[in-house]
């Protein structure tokens, strides 16, 4: 059962049972973005309030498994109130955590530094997911939607 306990850490179950930043924000001013996992039917809707290059508020709704729901809750807690540059860096770091070794091999230059789990805080609880390859998509669902939302926001008129 050790793998299973690695996957379902207490922090993950806690965020699944009591998700943070759950809800909606009025659009506009908030930007709304959806993400789907067509394989399992999971979905996520994210609302983003960005002002002065800071992600001032984030809310999420959606349905999914404990991994996708806990990951979106943990993500919201990690990025809320951060500068867009910090948010981007967190997205990159998390993605690296999920893709692990494969990502570093595919890059041209070698990555000298080990991924510093301390910078991830509670997000590091999701590292057990890597042992269950089919569940990585679950963990990445909200993160991909967040990245897409920020890209859309950056390209939106008036920004």
């Amino acid at each position: 059962m050790s793998n299973l306990e690695d996957l379902y850490r207490e922090i993950i179950l806690d965020h699944y049972r009591s998700p943070r930043n759950r809800g909606e924000l009025p659009t506009p001013p908030a930007h709304r973005v959806e993400g789907f996992n067509p394989l399992c039917g999971d979905d996520v809707v994210i609302y983003l309030n960005v002002r002065d290059e800071v992600l001032e508020d984030i809310k999420l709704t959606g349905h999914g498994c404990s991994i996708s729901q806990a990951s979106s809750s943990l993500m919201s807690a990690a990025v809320k109130g951060r500068s867009l540059a910090q948010v981007q860096s967190t997205i990159d770091t998390f993605k690296e955590l999920m893709t692990g070794h494969d990502a570093s091999l595919s890059k041209d230059e070698e990555i000298d530094e080990e991924l510093d789990l301390r910078t991830l805080g509670e997000l590091a609880a999701l590292q057990g997911v890597v042992k269950f390859p089919v569940r990585i998509k679950c963990a990445m669902l909200a993160w991909n939607a967040l990245r897409q939302g920020l890209e859309e926001f950056a390209q939106s008129p008036g920004h």
């Binding site: 299973l4 399992c40 999914g64 498994c65």
Partner: peptide
């Protein structure tokens, strides 16, 4: 209170093959 994927994941640890999803 448990998503089908989580059910199937835990069941796998018992060697039980069920299908989660739509």
């Amino acid at each position: 209170g448990v998503h089908a994927h989580d059910v199937a994941q835990v069941l796998d640890q018992f060697g039980v093959c069920v299908r989660p999803g739509h």
